[in-house]
């Protein structure tokens, strides 16, 4: 589907859908005569992640990125659709580990760093005996650029970047081959972000990791990924090779994202304060959900949802107005 020949997919996701029931409590609904309300957080999403590669998912707040991450790591159950993991090096089905955005909230403040990292080792019985566990914890701390003595400390004694290193060490403890990283550097300063991104790239090469990388920062995505999927209100609107999409974005939304994001190197100081809002996912626009903001929209766009089509170059686009050579 999206794979080029010769590549194998570590994960293939087909027609994944997640619906949340966000209705008011039953009694309120009856009293206020409100209907049941469903929120389609992820809507018929298909993609695959090349083994040893990095697929990034970008899009604005609420478009469903974290929901995809949670579906992939098994924290949510799909409402419909399939997730197919390939077999790992040990012949067993791959499992995904998650690295979260907020390195503080995701680390237990009352546990020492050593215990935080040792937990998956104990849980999965990957190492037994105090000596073996200590040895592995120290090894993991070194892998992420911390010192073995840091194991005795507590999360609050570390800076944001160091805390994110601890989360990475913990994720690596279970020896995953597949990591889902949900905005791993969004809470960090740019200088710290560079340290963490460099570490993630180095680990990918060294340990042969596959990444599903989630971010709203286009320059970070550009740096990290081989392929990009752009999401809008729960759907993928464009997906393809990273260099290709950044050089020639086809979908009007991808174009808008690339134009509207303030860029250090090519700032637009004469920008007119245009209007435009991200619609509510509770009440998504008809047809192509992007049509109210789209400069190319026609009557068809507001009535009919575009199907995702694959071009000869392997890019996938969901837009009525973009010519796709199929």
């Amino acid at each position: 589907m999206t794979m080029q020949t010769g590549e194998t997919a570590a994960l293939t996701v087909s027609r994944l859908t997640k619906t949340f029931d966000v209705s008011a409590p039953w009694l309120n609904r009856v009293v206020e005569r409100k209907p049941r309300q469903l929120l389609q957080a992820v809507d018929d999403v298909s993609f695959s992640v090349p083994a040893g590669g990095c697929l990034a998912i970008v899009g604005e707040s609420g478009c469903g990125k974290s929901t995809v991450a949670r579906l992939v790591t098994g924290l949510y159950r799909p409402s419909a659709g399939d997730l197919n993991f390939a077999n790992g090096r040990d012949g067993k089905t791959l499992r995904a580990q998650m690295i979260f955005q907020d390195p503080y909230a995701s680390l237990n403040p009352r546990w020492s760093v050593k215990n935080i990292i040792a937990e998956p080792l104990r849980e999965l019985k990957l190492r037994t005996g105090a000596a073996e566990i200590t040895e592995r914890v120290e090894e993991l701390l070194r892998i992420v650029g911390l010192s073995p003595s840091d194991g005795e400390k507590y999360p609050h004694e570390f800076s944001g970047g160091q805390r994110q290193r601890i989360s990475i060490a913990r994720a690596l403890a279970s020896e995953p081959e597949f990591l889902v990283c949900d905005e791993p550097t969004s809470a960090l300063d740019v200088s710290v972000q560079a340290q963490v991104l460099n570490l993630m790239r180095e680990l990918q090469d060294r340990l042969g990791l596959t990444y599903l990388f989630i971010s709203h920062d286009m320059s970070v995505v550009h740096h990290m990924s081989d392929r990009v999927a752009v999401m809008y209100l729960g759907r993928i609107v464009e997906e393809g090779d990273t260099e290709e999409i950044f050089a020639r974005p086809l979908h009007p939304y991808t174009q808008l994202l690339l134009q509207t994001i303030p860029n250090v190197r090519t700032p637009n100081r004469d920008r007119e304060p245009a209007n435009g809002e991200v619609p509510s996912p509770l009440n998504p626009p008809s047809g192509c959900t992007f049509h109210p903001r789209c400069p190319l929209a026609t009557a068809r766009c507001s009535s009919e949802a575009p199907k995702i089509r694959t071009s000869s170059s392997g890019a996938r686009i969901a837009c009525h107005m973009v010519d796709v050579e199929e």
Partner: peptide, 13 residues
């Protein structure tokens, strides 16, 4: 939202 940031900034400016 990322696409809204630029609007707010240009407005402020």
């Amino acid at each position: 939202d990322v696409s809204i940031q630029a609007q707010v900034i240009s407005l402020l400016r």
